[in-house]
Design a protein around this nucleic acid. Sequence first.
DNA 1: TTTATTTCTGGTCAATAGACCAAAAAATTA
DNA 2: TAATTTTTTGGTCTATTGACCAGAAATAAA
Lengths: 222, 222
Amino acid sequence: MTTSDAPEADDAGQEAAPARRRAGRKARETRERLIEGTLLALCDEGVTGITTRKIAEKADVHLGTLHYHFESKDALLMAVLDTLGARLAQQLRLGVAGSRDLDECIERVLETDWIIAERNLAIQIVQYELTLYALRTEGAAWMARRQYDDYIKAHDDAFAGHASGAPAEAIRRLSQAVMAGIDGIILQELAAPDLARSRGAVRDLIAAMQALARTLGLHRPR
Amino acid sequence: MTTSDAPEADDAGQEAAPARRRAGRKARETRERLIEGTLLALCDEGVTGITTRKIAEKADVHLGTLHYHFESKDALLMAVLDTLGARLAQQLRLGVAGSRDLDECIERVLETDWIIAERNLAIQIVQYELTLYALRTEGAAWMARRQYDDYIKAHDDAFAGHASGAPAEAIRRLSQAVMAGIDGIILQELAAPDLARSRGAVRDLIAAMQALARTLGLHRPR
DNA sequence: TTTATTTCTGGTCAATAGACCAAAAAATTA
DNA sequence: TAATTTTTTGGTCTATTGACCAGAAATAAA
């Protein structure tokens, strides 16, 4: 059995399903509170240190309630990962306003990527921890992949407007390189904190990615 | 109390220390067997799932023996991280033979970085897990930083020979960018396995890094 | 060989973990 | 308001965990 709703899960019997209902307003509120509480608990305990009791305390919810709303601790953890991913992609979309050309677009995307990360370094650790944890969890590896797909997609969309003539594959490759670079810089900042260095690294990455875009033939002939 | 021997730990009283001796040959053998066993156990359980009993079983060692050789499970885990880091840096040094110019050197370094990772993807996960775990563990965060420093250093050394005139800071920045990129690609390969894509990403990264080297003024005027 | 030291073993222990359930309470519907 | 459903609560249960210790065994020193 999968930990969360698997991608290929047939939604048949959505109404007459014998499973628990949990449809009310209050339920949704409690669910959200639990997810938020889990995130808080994860921030100061990490995946290895977290327990259902600590979560319940942070969410100010009874321990039994946790199991009423989530099938297992793993299911809750994966719900958090889901929320985190969606939030991240959303932040990126909002942060990247209109740019004049591709070079500027690359700059803005990377700058936005970094600002988001720098604002939430503690959460970034959690994100990595949960992604790795998903890879270990039976039936949850697909969530790690979706995290990646969604974030790549957000980057594709950001670049697409400034490379309309280019093949989608070239854009995709730029997105991958950009994401890889940012992820690597975040990892470095976590392991060896030094904001000044990391900001410099972002600048370097911007230059490198602009050059890559040229190599990939993404710039309009103008 | 620190988990392992901290960097600033005074080594005074090395001989007359009241602590356990553990100096014999057999002891060193068992220690290594424990580290190797822990690595194996980590590979198929992950940091969250590992237990001292599973380790002892993999290492074919009595549970009590584990605690005789290592102060705690954390200490053993950190010893593994240490071993892993040293092994990695060593592999890189060996893999990067003489290159003609900086461009070729960059290519070889990145290719080597990737080959090492691709050969040991399971271990790569463990490495990330342990690094993140170190960040959470009281008195072990310095180990995460040392992982980073050592690996950066290995890259610096690889590049230094082909950019002798350049300021050390520029070389350092190239090393950072290269490492960040590779780490990011590894992360992507773990989350969404696709060797063909990752290899392409490495090629793209090589091109981008060669361009960055130019931006940084690392190429000899020739 | 005898003595001293290092290393290993069997067994134990308190603490904590995730999960669960019957019943109470709250909310919704009739 | 009464009936029904959803949600919460208090309490419990078993399994597992990391750590530890006293003594046995093995190894090295005398």
